[in-house]
């Protein structure tokens, strides 16, 4: 073992010292609660005191819990917004990348929702969706369309929340795409032009593969975020919507845990949701590995 200089060791210690706060934070506020929750999912923990080991009972109950199935379905359903948001963001980014006047202004406009508080936005949209006085219906009224009472109708409540989520996330995805587009070397496009490629071919063979890592990143983070959707639902439809049509998995978990003293049961749901996210992400990584490197 080669001896190291004093300086080297000193730097190493400093290095670990700098690492310590986030690591401690992770252990204390993420890993410990997570492990505790996994343990809790095998108990009848009520959040007050009692915590008896009951094996897999919670998981068994989940299989026949209609509301849980409904909440999971709603959560998946609202993820339909992810590809829509993706396409819109890419289109916007490509538009803004052409150097049209006012690019900065548009970027700011699209980015404002991203930095706004989700709770505040939810309240604003709740008003906008109001059946009587809401902006959305007033706007539709201009075209002679009588809009529904968005949040009180079980068929429109999920699309309504999706639209809001897309609007809120658009700026973020757009900015990522814009950065990716700007880093694509001009020479590819010039070569394509010389070869006589049309716009669509250029997009399919150059732009799309070049921004693929960003697409991958956005899809992964959106699915993780989408699985955990809660605030919008809690604020806009505080009872989970008509016939529980907008309740998400996390919303149901929260109701069970903090409304009905069933923290153990909620933990079981949380574990299942985490497993789901984990598997989906894993599949995506595998898929990405396989199909990456198209351009080489």
């Amino acid at each position: 073992m080669p001896t190291k200089s004093k300086l080297y060791r000193k730097e190493m210690i400093y290095g670990y010292l700098f690492l310590a706060p986030p690591v401690i934070g992770m252990l204390l506020f993420t890993l410990y609660p997570m492990l505790y929750s996994i343990y809790g999912s095998f108990t009848d923990w009520d959040g007050l005191g009692q915590m008896n080991f009951i094996g897999l009972d919670n998981y068994k109950d989940l299989f026949s819990d209609e509301l849980f199935h409904k909440a999971m379905f709603n959560t998946f359903f609202m993820m339909i917004g992810i590809p829509i948001g993706l396409v819109l963001a890419l289109l916007l980014a490509m538009g803004l990348n052409r150097g049209i006047p006012g690019t900065t202004t548009f970027r700011v406009i699209y980015y404002v929702p991203v930095i706004s508080s989700l709770a505040a936005i939810s309240i604003l949209w709740q008003w906008a969706y109001n059946g009587d006085y809401g902006l959305v219906n007033q706007f539709l009224d201009l075209f002679g369309i009588k809009g529904p009472n968005w949040l009180a109708n079980k068929h429109t409540v999920k699309p309504a929340i999706m639209i809001m989520a897309i609007w809120k996330g658009l700026g973020y995805s757009m900015l990522l795409y814009l950065a990716a587009l700007q880093s694509v070397s001009r020479s590819y496009y010039e070569a394509a032009e010389l070869d006589g490629a049309n716009g669509f071919q250029t997009f399919r063979a150059i732009t799309w593969p070049m921004v693929k890592p960003v697409t991958f990143f956005i899809v992964v983070t959106s699915i993780i975020g989408g699985s955990q959707i809660f605030t919008e639902i809690n604020i806009m439809t505080s009872t989970g919507g008509p016939e529980y049509s907008s309740a998400s998995a996390v919303f149901y978990m929260w109701q069970k845990a903090f409304g009905n003293f069933q923290l153990g049961y909620s933990s079981a749901m949380a574990v299942l949701l985490a497993l789901f996210i984990f598997i989906v992400t894993l599949v995506q990584f595998k898929f990405n590995e396989k199909s990456s490197g198209d351009l080489d």
Binding site: N130, G131, D132, Y133, P148, N149, L151, A152, N153
Partner: peptide, 14 residues
């Protein structure tokens, strides 16, 4: 009462 689907109190309260 105000038309169908307006059980949301916000409307009637206002």
């Amino acid at each position: 009462t105000p038309s169908v689907q307006e059980a949301q109190t916000l409307d009637t309260y206002q």
